[in-house]
Design a protein around this nucleic acid. Structure first.
Lengths: 346, 346
DNA sequence: CTGTTAGCGCCTTCAT
DNA sequence: ATGAAGGCGCTAACAG
């Protein structure tokens, strides 16, 4: 395979200047009124000699890298993996590549990664943030690198975000449980204090309130999106003298922990206890009993994130505040038991 | 936050030449016998003024980009997502970033992606290949960009690969089923003709042969690693007058399809039919019955892939042939029924 | 319609 | 122990 290494070489082969070659290759032939003949010769030669522009020379010159950064807390989490897939696809469509970074649920790593990506001159960053601190993010925004936040909403920070309507998702989930006769519903939550979690808890509470069910604070437990927290809190809920008949899991990892705890206690879903979890997964349908879930529009989140980011990049407006809220979808399967005709009580 | 934009600016601030600054920043202070005093001043100023070298200027000059490409068939598949996580982590440790590409199970996309990454001047590529064709890969190798293949072995191509010992994995899985009394065991396979699949099928066959069980070709079915194939082939196996008592699924997606088909037919695992699947997943333990799986050392695969690639990069030896084969692990749970004391027959 | 020139920020050779 | 100069490959400004 013949391969020419730069524009000069190519130009020499055709016998014209590098400038003209550059112009044709950048689609500026008409603008500079280059003859069709010359144009054609350039295009042919470029194809024949496998010419590809050196991206570094171009990046240096134009300060455009056609690269985006993506930071997620855990790429092995299918939720983020699906979003990453969508982001990669949409970016490629638009001529961008993505540098993938995994912050490993560490705020410190996240900070380093942000710097690293800026150093690599990405044109923008899509960030699924971790933890409670946000000052490193607002600091970073000062640099002028456009950022789009996904999965979360960062109050008080001027930055676009793409989120799911978590409030409505939780509301619908709990409404569903209530409609099946449940009144004592536990809620195992993730990291307290972040919008994602707060919104879901509020949805949970409002659903109860809408049906005049008293909110019991000891039924709202936990402080981490991980599996272990799901396990621990379930154990705690089960030890209550007046057990909940249903549990809302605020993440899919939490639901895994719940299932582990339940199974260790010889309890079956939905016969002994009902469950609805956030984040649908490919396997959700194949569990002991197919799980009712709150599905987030992962593909749409990725697509919107890329397009919003590209918009900020092209506007040069780093601080625009577009918040896009996407609708979740309650997928009803078989993890909530209908207990309407059963006497209440333990 | 003060930020200096290039080496020249920084040099001007200190009042020395850019050359000296560059030397200090590249750790060549001793080599050029630069005074400790000057060295210190440079380091301090660089930190104070947040100097980061422009990666494009450096890439242009050094032809080193500290970037690796990763191409996977489907990043939303937890198997590849886990490997990606490991690759990202290991790369970062070594000072490399990774550009993530999803070939969407398309050989054509894979070819394009290979070109794209070469155009982006990645120093090397980790590729989980798709499909049966390999000529685009051998063509690509001519370019001199180091490549490491994961998940598969490409016979006849001079390229390092990191794979799991699929033969042994399948062998152990089937030995396990046989030890529980199964003799009529179906095997739903993925894409025929690729090493990954062939090795697993051979392991399956040899396990049967070791126990003098006749190999029935109609029990070995399918030609795709996807969920639908798992479903279709299960339907076919179930329609056999002499049904298998157990099935080996050659991918986790296939096992999802199997579960769907089984559930539609009102069949339970392991009571009505037993199942072992390749690729352990976080949820495997929480299924209707916890699934026995053949787990691949995903973290190790990623780590080895990065280090092998880095070795080829530093050697400048594109065509070395290191094939690393890692041991799988059979995780025994509860999806294989013990039928030893039961009369054989349908 | 096409070419010449200069410079993006960096590192290395050569010079001192 | 430090600097000056040149060039990596590209494109935009300027010049015809």
């Amino acid at each position: 395979m013949v391969q020419v290494k730069n524009i000069k070489e190519l130009a020499a082969i055709i016998g014209i200047s590098a400038t003209t070659v550059s112009r044709v290759l950048n689609g500026k032939a008409t603008k500079y009124r280059i003859s069709d003949n010359t144009s054609k010769k350039v295009l042919d030669a470029a194809a024949r000699f496998n010419y590809y522009p050196n991206i570094f020379a171009r990046g240096l010159r134009l300060e455009k890298t056609e690269t985006l950064g993506l930071i997620v807390p855990d790429i092995a989490n299918p939720f983020f993996a699906s979003i990453a897939k969508s982001i990669e696809f949409e970016s490629r469509l638009k001529g961008y590549s993505i540098i993938l970074c995994d912050s490993m649920d560490s705020c410190q790593t996240e900070t380093i990664l942000l710097q690293l990506l800026a150093g690599r001159k990405v044109e923008g960053i899509i960030l699924a943030p971790v933890g409670l601190r946000t000052d490193h993010i607002s600091d970073f925004l000062e640099k002028g690198v456009p950022v789009v936040i996904i999965d979360r909403y960062l109050p008080g920070i001027q930055v676009p975000s793409i989120i799911t309507d978590n409030y409505t998702g939780a509301l619908q989930a709990v409404e569903h449980m209530i409609s099946k006769g449940h009144r004592k519903i536990g809620c195992i939550q993730g990291l307290n204090g972040i919008s994602l979690n707060t919104d879901r808890v509020n949805g949970y509470k409002d659903a109860l309130m809408n049906h005049n069910i008293r909110i019991e604070e000891n039924l709202i437990a936990g402080n981490d999106f991980g599996e272990q927290n799901g396990y621990d809190q379930t154990m705690k809920l089960l030890s209550l003298r007046d057990r909940p008949t249903a549990i809302l899991a605020l993440s899919n990892l939490i639901s895994l922990g719940i299932m582990r705890a339940l199974s260790e206690n010889g309890l079956a879903i939905p016969d002994d206890i009902s469950l609805v979890a956030f984040d649908d997964q490919p396997y959700s349908a194949y569990l002991a009993s197919p799980m009712t879930t709150v599905d987030q529009p992962k593909e749409e989140i990725g697509k919107r994130a890329v397009n919003t980011l590209l918009d900020s990049i092209h506007d040069g407006d780093t601080k625009r505040q577009t918040n896009i809220m996407l609708k979740p979808r309650l997928i009803v399967r078989n993890s909530v038991k209908d207990i309407r005709d059963i006497k209440m009580g333990s």
